[in-house]
Nucleic acid binder design. Structure first.
Length: 950
RNA sequence: GCGGGAGUGGUGUAACGGCAGCCACGCCAGACUUAGGAUCUGGUGCCUUCGGGCGUGGGGGUUCGACUCCCCCCUCCCGCACCA
């Protein structure tokens, strides 16, 4: 054991410093953020003239799985940002809460045999300890969990606002349901299409019928439809929670379609606004694109084809190709299939069309059976051979009376458009493939290029073969042709221009225990009734068995059984809802776990407010638009890209409803959003393919060995199964939290994913040790700065360059470049001022402040040792002085034909002529120019000179 | 298949259209040391006949000048995927 100087910045010293400062921050309420009004407004006068800055992480889900060093990455990024903005003069709100309802928490609880509240709260406590140990500057007064009754009371309240609203298509916004009723009563509005099954006028309906009509308008409505039933989880799932191969995102269980009555949220009403407002957000293009794709708006036309005495409605984005339709296809599940199917095959039916069956109905039945069995699982295979059968009938093309045989085929999906298509093999690849397989004709209506060698031509070109007695599209381009034919179809009553979306309404019911109960009861007519606000929250009852009834994974015929339905004392309730005490039946489904995360950012503003969801004045202050046309919202929201379509779409939807109803002044919840990268790690397998502990693998000459035996290196997620997990606790024990923070932030821009490399962490520790040594004498512990010394000019330049660089890195979330500039400054100081030359205080102090957002504990400690009594958390961040950013003299490169041949030193303000003269005076340049003709000279002041010679 | 993003030393990365590789890891050498897995200093893209030459996935182009802009191609990652 050698002599470590007694006052070196060792891991042990780092621990002591960190724990002490964490205590002090808490005791002094250093990170308490004052609100402009209300119960958290103490101290606001201190920050009243500051701009506000609301920075947030996607809150964690305390699932109980172990935390590794990748988890805090985003939190460290927002923490550095929050600390920087606070020092730089903003009133910063940086809160944290916990998303604690939902499947994983419940599953973990089931595994451990404990009540989900017990395990969830224990997990939350564990995360809190870790966040505190990392030194994160959350305002702990504002924390909450979605399972707190004081929180979910307002989740339920928001549900009731959604339930109490309808979407007025004319106004393009949500309105109160009472206004709908008033307009229906007054006769100024008719029920929306599809909301009145009776077919009788509103005035003639009885109370129950009227309520059914009204309920069908609501933004939250009960709907019987095929849903994603997951027997393995014992619950239904939203479309967003089902993977493309028909499995649950959580748990990877098979999912089946089966009809059920469930709560839905009418997010489709907001499809256009959700799509269009993306343009107003400061989000990455890739994220916006994911949302655009999910919403999936496509414009086209709806066209009716008559077939027997029915009309087959199709949706197409290419009405211009209508003359090229040669057959039609319905989805196997299409409702008209039964009615349209002919009694028998006409003579001479192509055997490929019959599926080998004796009659059309037999063929249809068999094909439907196959299709349902195949379901989602291998429908994904786009390259599969096209299959289908003919119904034995033909429809008529309204444009030319051509007979179009009608097929069913599983390449047409029930859920999209109208579930039926007109097939145009000439211009659609899928239709071409089907036509090939079934021997159907092709009519080209777009002229393919001369060298086109067959197949569907989906590109542009002039229209051909597209004329009848009344209209000709020939020669037109696609856009004109679409406009012309749509006009014709509308005029003749054959169709209309229309828009469809991939986005479906949001399935909002879950047959689970661990979620928010619906604030809804059912009356004697089985119609839903809102629980009055005064009776919120509807508390989640205690039950003996909170685990859901699950089934064999593949038991498609099983039916959901919500755990709450077993709480028989709870499910029926006597209430007086204004017409005397009556018995009601409670809703036994619970909300999906997305509900709680849809609006939590609003609750941070004052989680203790029991009188309202959010104080409008606080919302305006923290989230309101900054200027006309601004969407408002959280100033910086950091989280994983996996929430691109789930949480972020749902939260935007709720926010817009709240905006329409006047509860919030901002149009969007998250103004700027950044997806932090992931930390991955190498993993190693031995010759048997088993994972070996990654920490014990050694590298020699590019070879990796474990216990002397060679192993294979893989790269993947960090976790127990790959035996490559590294925890924050281990790293903090070995280096301290500040080192871990600096290391994680130094490995790249926040958005970037990166590999973990434990052996590189020491570099960050060395940096902090050097900074420590700049200020503290390792032998005596005394502060060794020179209080009155004037820094050398060179040192001042280094300092101000560092300040400018750190500010740039902080603003752009590229903490790696901020750290690089701090390192440069530190290295400069250690070089200029060796062991016996003190660093001027006027340089040491700004250095400490620059480091503070990234390594706050060591910075506070050094700041205190420099004699400051106050925490530096609120101290102004250093400003770069332009004077020291510009050099008096600069080195410029001299190029000859673009190649650097020399460096010359010139005054910084030297003009082009002076630059050229200086360059020509350099002997190496002269040598390169000797005997050649200088054709052109490019001299950029302060940058370079380039001689173009011939 | 469609759409998006990215390819820079052994590694993570950095470079307003202007000196490619800042900073760090690793590696090499030295200093202080009984010692070094501490610390400090120096070096470290490749090739080289030591003049220099070549280098940002490949190939073209624009430009006095391209990692950066444009076109084609390759590879990897992400998203969507029979969406009419």
């Amino acid at each position: 054991m050698g002599d470590v100087p007694p006052h070196r910045y060792t891991p042990a010293l780092a621990q002591r410093i960190e724990l002490a400062w964490q205590d002090r921050w808490e005791a002094e309420g250093t990170f308490h953020t004052p609100n402009p009004t209300g119960r958290l407004s103490e101290g606001f006068e201190r920050v009243a003239d500051r701009p506000k800055y609301f920075v947030m992480d996607m809150f964690p889900y305390p699932s109980g799985a172990g935390l590794h060093v990748g988890h805090p990455l985003g939190y460290l990024g927002t923490d550095a940002t929050s600390r920087f903005r606070r020092m730089d003069g903003a009133n910063v709100l940086h809160p944290m809460g916990y998303d604690a309802f939902g499947l994983p928490a419940e599953q973990y609880a089931v595994q451990t045999g404990q009540h989900p509240r017990v395990t969830t709260e224990a997990n939350i406590a564990a995360i809190k300890v870790q966040l505190r140990r990392l030194g994160i500057d959350h305002d702990e007064r504002r924390t909450f969990a979605t399972i707190d009754p004081g929180y979910y009371k307002w989740t339920q309240w928001i549900f009731l606002q959604v339930f109490g609203s309808w979407f007025d298509e004319d106004a393009g916004k949500a309105r109160r349901i009472a206004e709908l009723v008033a307009e229906l009563d007054a006769g100024t509005r008719e029920p929306a299409p599809g909301t009145n099954d009776t077919g009788r006028p509103w005035a003639e309906l009885d109370d129950v019928e009227r309520r059914r009509v009204v309920d069908a308008h609501r933004l939250a409505y009960l709907h019987q439809a095929p849903v994603n039933w997951c027997p393995g989880l014992g619950t239904v799932l939203s479309n967003e929670e089902v993977t493309p191969d028909g499995r649950s995102e959580r748990g990877n269980f098979p999912v089946f379609r089966r009809p059920l009555t469930q709560w839905m949220m009418r997010i489709t009403a907001y499809a256009d606004r959700l799509l269009e407002d993306l343009d107003r957000l400061d989000w990455s293009d890739s994220l916006k694109l994911m949302q655009r794709n999910w919403i999936g708006r496509s414009t086209g036309a709806r066209i009716g084809f008559s077939c027997a005495d029915q009309t087959i409605e199709v949706f197409t984005t290419r009405p211009d190709t209508l003359f090229g339709a040669t057959y039609m296809v319905l989805a196997p599940e299409h409702p008209l299939v039964g009615t349209l199917t002919a009694a028998e095959w006409p003579d001479g039916t192509d055997p490929r069309w019959t599926g080998g069956a004796a009659t059309p109905s037999e063929a249809v039945r068999e094909y439907q059976r196959q299709a349902s069995r195949r379901s989602e699982l291998d429908r994904q295979d786009a390259g599969r051979e096209k299959t289908g059968v003919w119904l034995g009938v033909s429809a008529v093309n309204p444009v030319n009376d051509r007979e179009l045989p009608v097929f069913i085929a599983d390449y047409v999906l029930t859920g999209y458009g109208t579930g039926a298509i007109m097939a145009v093999p000439g211009e659609d690849t899928r239709d071409w493939e089907f036509a090939e397989a079934f021997g159907l004709p092709v009519i080209r209506t777009v002229q393919p290029p001369a060298d086109w060698d067959g197949g569907a031509w989906t590109g542009g070109g002039p229209m051909i073969n597209s004329a009848n007695d009344e209209i000709s599209l020939d020669g037109l381009d696609k856009a004109e042709a679409i406009a012309r034919i749509t006009e014709w179809l509308v005029a003749r009553g054959y169709g209309e221009a229309t828009t469809t979306y991939k986005l479906r309404d949001w399935l909002f019911s879950r047959q689970r225990y661990w979620g928010e109960p619906f604030p809804v009861v059912y009356d004697e007519n089985d119609l839903p009734v809102a629980v009055p606000d005064s009776m919120l929250p509807v508390l989640l009852p205690e039950v003996d068995d909170y685990s859901p009834k699950t089934f064999a994974d593949d038991d498609a015929d099983s039916a959901p059984e919500p755990p709450l339905s077993r709480a028989t004392e709870w499910t029926t309730v006597e209430l007086d809802l204004g017409d005397g005490p009556k018995k009601y039946r409670r809703e036994t489904n619970t909300m999906p776990n997305w509900a709680g995360s849809c609006w939590y950012y609003l609750r941070y503003l004052d989680p203790g407010d029991d009188t309202q969801m959010v104080d409008p004045e606080l919302e305006r202050y923290w989230l309101g638009p900054r200027e006309r046309g601004d969407v408002g919202g959280v100033d910086l929201y950091v989280g994983g890209v996996e929430h691109a379509v789930l949480h972020l779409l749902y939260a935007r939807f709720w926010h817009k409803v709240l905006f329409d109803l006047g509860y919030v002044s901002s149009e969007e919840p998250f103004r700027r959003l950044v997806n932090q990268g992931y930390i991955s790690a190498y993993a190693y397998t031995d010759e048997r393919g088993f994972y070996v502990p990654a920490a014990e693998v050694v590298e020699e000459d590019g070879r990796f060995t474990f216990e002397g035996k060679p192993v294979n290196r893989e790269y993947g997620k960090m976790g127990k199964s790959l035996k490559n997990m590294v925890t924050p606790d281990e790293m903090i024990a070995a280096y301290g939290a500040d080192t871990l923070r600096v290391y994680e932030m130094s490995t790249g821009p926040l958005e970037q994913s990166r590999p973990w490399e434990t052996k590189a962490v020491v570099g960050s520790q060395r940096l902090l040790q050097r900074i420590w040594r700049v200020i503290v004498d390792e032998e005596t512990g005394a502060v060794r700065t020179a209080d009155d010394a004037q820094p050398a000019e060179e040192t001042l330049r280094a300092l101000h360059r560092a300040i400018a660089g750190v500010r740039d890195g902080m603003a752009t979330l590229r903490f790696n470049i901020a750290i690089a500039r701090i390192t440069e400054l530190t290295n400069h100081l250690t070089q200029v001022h060796g062991a016996d030359s003190a660093v001027p205080r006027s340089v040491a102090e700004p250095l400490v402040l620059l480091v503070a957002p990234l390594a706050p504990h060591i910075a506070e400690e050094l700041w205190a040792r420099l004699g400051h009594e106050q925490s530096l958390a609120w101290h102004p961040f250093p400003e770069a002085d332009e004077r020291w950013l510009v050099e008096d003299t600069v080195q410029v490169a001299v190029q000859v034909n673009g190649k650097v041949r020399a460096q010359v030193t010139v005054p910084a303000d030297a003009d082009a002529a002076a630059l050229e003269a200086a360059a020509r005076a350099d002997e190496r340049v002269a040598a390169h120019l000797d005997g050649k003709t200088v054709r052109r000279v490019v001299a950029v002041p302060g940058r370079l000179v380039n001689f173009v010679v011939g």
